[in-house]
Design a protein around this nucleic acid. Sequence first.
DNA 1: GCCAACGTTGGC
DNA 2: GCCAACGTTGGC
Length: 154
Amino acid sequence: MHYWLMKSEPDEVSIDDLAAAPGQSVPWFGVRNYQARNFMRNGMAIGDLAFFYHSGCAEPGIAGICEVCSEPYPDDTQFAPDSPYFDAKSDREKPRWWLRDVRFVSKTRYLPLAELRRYPELANMRLLARGNRLSITPLSADEWAFINRRLAEN
DNA sequence: GCCAACGTTGGC
DNA sequence: GCCAACGTTGGC
């Protein structure tokens, strides 16, 4: 079992959108970074849990929890010329970009990035590393447990 | 294989 | 809107 943090722009897919989706699950489309792709394709397993993080908004932070619920498969948007995620260099024989489906688990209290930064226990968290831009990052079991305790407060 | 230029991410 | 940091591209 591994733990993850997955960023989504709430304008595109928010935690509420995930909860309202058919089957309460969505394909995690649009990842165009090899490291993040490798985490999804090779690092994840069905049943892994992830924090659902809102980024690119006024106050970024953790908004809920989701669960990996499919094996990896090619991201369709890479083949759609009218999609912002279209990749002309990918082809169906050998797709570049892979994704998994994630399913809604719960909505949490909103835990802002600024609060995450205040906890010394999270000093080594990948998300908080200087200049980090990865949209999918792993968490240690300790980090996962610590954040869950903070979420249970208030 | 190096590295400069460029485009993108994402917090502020 | 700004800009620091990063990943990718492509010329050499």
